[in-house]
Design a protein around this nucleic acid. Sequence first.
RNA 1: CGGGGUGUGGCUCAGCUUGGUAGAGCGCUCGGUUCGGGACCGAGAGGUCGGCGGUUCAAAUCCGCCCACCCCGACCA
Length: 567
Amino acid sequence: MRASQLLLPTVKEDPAGAEAVSHKLMVRAGLIRQLAAGVYVFLPAGWRVMRKIEAVIREEMEAIGGQEMLYPVVNPAEIWQQSGRWQTIGEELFRFKDRKGADMVLAMTHEEVVTWLAAREIHSYKQLPQLWFHIQTKERDEARPKSGLLRVREFIMKDSYSLDADFAALQRSYDKHIAAYDRIFARCGVNARRVLSDPGMMGGGISHEYMAPSEAGEDEIVLCQKCGYAANVDLAVAGPEPAGAAAAVTGGGQEGPREIHTPGMRTIDDVAAFLGIEPRELMKSLVVVSQESGPLLVALRGDRDLHEGKLRRIVGEFRLATPDEVVAAQGVQPGFVGPVGTSLPVLGDEALRGGVFTGGANRADYHLAGISADQVVGEYHDLRLVRGGDPCPECGGPLAGERVIEVGNIFQLGTKYSRPMGATFSDEQGVERDIVMGSYGIGLERIAATAVEQHHDEHGICWPAAIAPFQVHLLVVRAADPSQAALAEELYATLAERGLDVLFDDRDLSAGVKFKDADLLGCPVQVVVGKRAAERMVELKRRAGGDRRDVAADDLAAAVAAALGAS
RNA sequence: CGGGGUGUGGCUCAGCUUGGUAGAGCGCUCGGUUCGGGACCGAGAGGUCGGCGGUUCAAAUCCGCCCACCCCGACCA
């Protein structure tokens, strides 16, 4: 490809509002343009990256027996009603009516279509297992698109679906995907690890997410260096607090609580600073309203945050009480709420057990010191969000926290979809049974963006070789110089003959512009035809690391191949 | 959905507080000089100031409503 004929609109300035490095660089390098919030156009070079990622994924899916097909984006509402997701998914699902007034949806994933297909075409155990996949646009009306390609409303996903006769077979399909995913991420140069996840809207049993460490990530995981436990904090179980961790004391615990004047001190930080104690010595009291059981008081140690999912599993749907409701229930404004003397049921986090704390006095401008958790908490549960530094729930070792980008996920769906949608088969005994399913996703733009997040420097992107828009960026310093131009043309032809993807910057521009563009775009190997063209010498530079050396033109193809192998 | 912010040539932004003939840098076009790290000189083109309504002799500027986009939170795989 000749740069003179390629739409590669690089820009000097960061796009307005961009925060994530990958967002800035992908726009600046001329790979993408934003059409609407969370909706992007892929320009030629950007699309080349996507197609290379797609090719890697396709190869690895075929290698484990995947059969590629294509499912429609436009779905009739019926199948989504059958699976139940028409009801359970909220505004994230794009819905519309066709001209006849029939409800339709834009698919955000394809369990429904796959199960519909399976229900029609799979009848016998002899047809199992099946492994189906497709690579297609997905539509999700994200509440808050952000960070360039990291969180969008329209994106391309490889999703595969396994159909098996039983759970043992599902586990085999699952394991095949694990192996394939490890290879896919490795080949794409993305550092990602598999962690336990919360199945969320996909439903079903075991699931894992592939998480790529990055500051730009929106998720957080904890991992144990000692035993390898790794989980999304959405799911992570809190390990037991070390003995005595809760036992900090302010004021005597024996003789009971004692009032302290704390005028206007409403937040944990305010109170701690005012009293000269640590947040962990405080008890945080939240009033929540459960749909089923009404108002409740939830108590946590002052330095801990509530994990809403954990509370939801215990009390069902709930919301934080409004200030008016707090006053109605506790007789005091938020900020001075406490468990002593409350009429509400009190749920306490395990980290409070056995400790003595300072908490709200249920009286404006007063707190109580010396509250014994065991005397006020009705039930203890694991309610806190796990964070780095906590003990591992498996082995007690310290957990490290890490921000990550979710680049893929795998779910053991079981019969969650096959049962309601009637996808069954006859087993060896002629007994009709539900197909056991799994679903497996990988987001292509997330791989692209993550690769940029993980591989860049102050000059631009440093693409992993397998997914770079071009393998080689060939540029002539002076296109107007006949000997330089002639040698560059010759090398362009030679490299292309070797089957290499070459971007040839033949533009008659000042050298600086071309160097800057090449670094921004980030192809793994750069070849510079310059001053020494007459001697048939060129410069070879590896983008990552920046090492450069002179190479004889006749040895270039071999040198490029070697450099690519090392990238 | 709650809170905050922004919308001015293609891009990044200034101008708005205190109303009075719309600016800069980059990019683009033409001419010339340059030519190994986003060159220089000269000459140009290009904007109903997000939209609608209001106040005013006069609105980019003040007021109201709407729209879009960004950030924080909620939500989410």
